[in-house]
Amino acid sequence: MSPDLLPSELTSGVLMATSFAVLLTMILALVRATLGPTVFDRVLALNMFGTKTVLLISVVSFVTGRSDFLDLALLYSLMNFIGMVALLRFTQYNSFSDSAVITGESNEP
């Protein structure tokens, strides 16, 4: 890690404040996921939580000056998307197989 990648005092303070704001938002999302009366409240809370994780990782990587963590943030957002699609698909069709919805399509070689 080269020292010029480390942020200055002021930037570091701003980044720390940002990370605490992100943590606060994570807590709010957690509360909504616990209380959430409907399925979609919880799905939204989980989606927001994943986004906040990506933001937190990005902010922390800039505080510590290690920008290689940004790759991880990208992977997290991809995982978040795949998980969301799987969850919503399950909610709508109650299964993952295509044959339950459109018969015969998944049997094509």
Partner: peptide, 20 residues
């Protein structure tokens, strides 16, 4: 259903902790 979503949140959290 909600428990599964919370396990997702849990692994996101633990992954960011391991990263730190």
């Amino acid at each position: 259903w909600a428990v599964i979503m919370f396990t997702g949140i849990y692994s996101f959290l633990s992954a960011s902790w391991m990263m730190i």
